[in-house]
């Protein structure tokens, strides 16, 4: 019962971050602030959702896989955000 409650609260919190990230992606003026919004959704949103689902796992292996998924998504999102930001920086400098 407590585990279900924790899942509800944490996944809901994760969804809030995803909604906020999506709104930011749509509303923010330039690439850099959009990236800022997007990475929050990836890092915290997915983190909270994974944490919420973690309360429903039955074996340690499932827990480890959830953690691995989050870690890989974090790694990929962080790297891609850096690369996109660098590409965007190069384009904006060319235009100026």
């Amino acid at each position: 019962m407590m585990a279900d409650l924790a899942t509800y609260v944490l996944t809901a919190l994760g969804l809030v971050f995803f909604v906020a990230g999506t709104v930011g992606l749509l509303r923010f003026p330039d690439t850099f602030s959009r990236l800022h919004a997007l990475t929050k959704a990836d890092n915290l949103g997915l983190g909270f959702i994974a944490l919420g689902i973690a309360f429903q796992t039955e074996t340690w292996a499932q827990l480890a896989m959830l953690a691995l998924i989050w870690a890989l998504a974090l790694l990929a999102a962080g790297t891609v955000a850096q690369l996109v930001a660098r590409a965007a920086l190069a384009t904006t400098q060319e235009e100026e």
Binding site: L68, L72, L75, A76, G78, T79, Q82, L83
Partner: peptide, 13 residues
């Protein structure tokens, strides 16, 4: 750089 580190971290996994 970032990409080089990524290229070393991801392949083992």
């Amino acid at each position: 750089g970032v990409l080089a580190s990524f290229g070393r971290l991801l392949p083992p996994v």
